[in-house]
Every structure is written in C-alpha cells, then in structure tokens.
Design a protein around this nucleic acid. Structure first.
Lengths: 211, 211
DNA sequence: CTCATAACTCAACCAGTGTTGATATTGTGC
DNA sequence: GCACAATATCAACACTGGTTGAGTTATGAG
C-alpha cells in the first residue's frame, strides 16, 4: 500500500539506474519473504513484490530468473533453526520432549524475520514442488534424526518423523488456520501440555508398548 | 486427458441436451472432488474438471455458479467422520488416545471417495477462505470438543485443539508431504506410537503437570 | 573522458482462467 | 403436437500474471 505509482521518496519514477548505493536486491528479497510468508506462493504476485520493494516487476525477473527461483531464494530452513534443534537434544532424556517442543515453537514463532522463511516453506508446500520437497526433507532428515538416531529406541526415525509432523501440525493450527483456542494459549501452557506427549513418543516407557 | 475435443463415447461433440438419463451433474461433482483433493484449489481449473467429466466448462458454471461454489459443494467434513469421532469417545478413558488416533486415521485415509472431501479441505485451507474457515471450525468446535468437554480436565478445549491439529499434521505428513518414513509405517504401528501420546494429552496423569 | 556494463523502467506479449451470452438439442407438461 | 424449461456446446470477453525486449540512466575501470 505504501509505494505504488509514486514512491514517497524523492526518487519518483525515474527511468534508469538509481544513484547512490545498491540496496534494491536486498529490498526485493525482504519484500518477497514477507509476502510469501503471509500470502503463500500462488497468492503472491511478482508485481506485488516489486511494488512493495518500490521497483518495477521486470527488475525482479532480472535479478532472480523466475518466480520459482525468487521463492527458492527466500524459502528455507535457516541453519540457525537446525542448530537450535540439535541443541535441544543435548543433555538428559528427562525433559527431552519439553525441550524439543520449546525449541520448535521458539524457532517457528520467534521474531518475524527469522520465522518467515519457514512460514513461506509451509505455505508453499502444497502448491510448490520445491517447498514440498524442502519440507519433506526437513521432516525426514534434517530435524530430529541425527539427534534421536543415537538413542536406543525402536523405530527411532519413525518417532522423529511423527514428532516433527505433529509439531508442524500444531504450528499450522496456530499460525495458518488460526484456531482461536490454539492462538489464545500462551507458549508455556502449550509446552506443558504437549511436552509430555512428545516425551512419550521420543522416550517411551520401557514397561508398556507391547500388547 | 481423456475427453477434450472428442470424447471416446459415441456422443461425440453434439450441440444440445443429451438423450437418456441425467448423470452429468453427479459426474461433474465426482471429477471436481478428485481434482480438488489431488491438486488443491488453485491448481484445479474449471476447464480441467469439465474435461474430466466430459463436459464443456460453461456447463459447470451453469450448475454451480462459480468455482468457489463448486469447491464448497465438494469440500466438507462428512457427517460420517464426525459420527466416527463421537463414537471414539464412548467408553472408558483407558485407551481413549488409541481409539481417537485410530478413528482419525481411518476416517482420513479410508477409501478415497470418502476422504477426498477432507483432503480437498486441507489442500484448500491455505488459499481458499472457505476451506480455511471450515478447517478452523473443524479443529475448534466440531471435532473433539463435545467429546472431551464432558471430561473433567483443565484446558479441555485446548487439549482437544492440540490433539486435532497434531493429528492433522500427521495426516499432512503422510498424505501431502509424503514423508517416506511416515508413509512407510503401517497404521497399527503408528497408532501404537501416537496413541499413548494423545492419551497423555487428553487424560493427563493426576500426579504431574505442575512444576 | 570514454565506454562497457550493471541497474533500472516501459510497454507489450502471451498463455491461462473464470465467466458470460448466444445458440442448439432434448425432455416434459398441456 | 407445441411451447417452455432443462441440458448442452461454442465463441469470445475481460483480466490477471509471468515473462520479455527495447530503451534510459548511473557506476566504474582503463
């Protein structure tokens, strides 16, 4: 809504290269990240991103070759997030579930800037093949596997995948579907309820589990 | 891919009303259900649905007034599913979690015909407002609430929402993202792992839960 | 200074897509 | 049999949205 036909700055709609330092590429990326995270892949148009960045649409195409590549440049699992998860696995089994849930929620619902690529990935996963593959890989390999693989449990990988997908479901319910009950709950309450459940999946009690 | 310019049947591309009984409306609905469930809302075009049904696109518009209404006619939570869930709550607390998970998976991954409306709803939930609202309502009210509301637990509604969204996440991981580990696991294994976790959310042990 | 090159904008193309109005054929009630 | 409604196709409109090619202005190396 800000800049459309005539940006507020003095630059106006001049025709050629802009004077001064070169910030535009970054600006486009920022705008794209926001849009893709908020509106999803199909609902986000290049023209809109360009407008948000105060730039012509064709420039976007010149920097990134296509809409898909622009999306790919934005949608990702930040390495920070992966580190965060690995860290959650250090230490004893005792409150493992709780730690994992906390890490998950903090990473996904942290400050907007860092969670946007994740949201973009989620929202794109249904329509865009790259996002779908990225999410699959995330759920399959990158997330809890290396953490849990070292633990001596049956179906370790499966358990990791289950926990991941379930927590993604929780995030979707809060952030995309916006279920009032879920959005209304504060993080700690959520952790106190979900934590033990996740614990139960990751570290099953030795007594039961076999009918 | 089948019928486009010249359907395989003898009807050819005749101009007016077809002789015989009237099946076309149902055919359109069937085609739409399949497409919406498989490709999602935006990726599904009216022309494609029409082609699948062996019909001109404008006829689809005549029966259902718009793409959204066609989608609305297809995407839904079948009453059968709701009944199934209610039934899962009858009986003791003891294996409640297991029963709920089983009901959930059976309903969502049953024969294609009955699960397609649910899948359509899921795939549409990101792009289409109606689907989003329907899913929200499903997670919020229709699902486990009436079942769990009668039980004397703190945060009963919240717990219901948590379980629902987590199980939706599981279904998404299996059916939409197609995580190999998850798709590879058979339903009973899944139930045996997820059941206790869900149990832990719905019927928390009286001893713990307060740090 | 000069000139290649990078950073820009403009106008337009092109393919789809939802949607509509006109028309043709069949069924049905009188 | 006949008018009217229901069922069907066809052609085309309006519009969006990704993508492209040509032209315009700054930067930076030689």
């Amino acid at each position: 809504m800000t800049a459309h036909t005539s940006p507020a700055t003095a630059t106006a709609t001049r025709r050629g290269r802009r004077p001064g330092t070169n910030t535009t590429r970054r600006a486009i990326l920022d705008a794209a990240r926001v849009r893709f995270a908020a509106d999803g892949f199909t609902a986000t148009t290049i023209r809109r991103v360009a407008a948000d960045a105060g730039v012509d649409a064709s420039l976007v195409m010149q920097f990134f070759r296509s809409k898909s590549e622009l999306f790919a440049a934005v949608m990702s699992v930040p390495p920070k997030a992966l580190t965060r998860f690995s860290a959650a696995f250090e230490g004893t089994d005792e409150h493992l579930g709780e730690r994992v849930v906390r890490a998950f929620l903090e990473v996904w619902e942290g400050d907007d800037t860092s969670s946007e690529p994740l949201m973009a990935m989620l929202r794109g996963a249904i329509v865009n093949d790259q996002a779908n593959e990225q999410l699959r890989e995330f759920l399959q390999e990158r997330l809890l596997v290396d953490g849990i693989a070292s633990r001596a449990v049956d179906n370790a990988t499966l358990r990791a995948g289950i926990v991941s997908s379930m927590l993604v479901g929780l995030v979707v319910g809060r952030g995309i579907v916006s279920v009032p009950t879920l959005t209304g709950a504060d993080r700690e309450t959520l952790i106190s309820i979900v934590g033990p459940a996740v614990q139960r999946v990751l570290v099953p009690p030795p007594t039961a589990e076999r009918p």
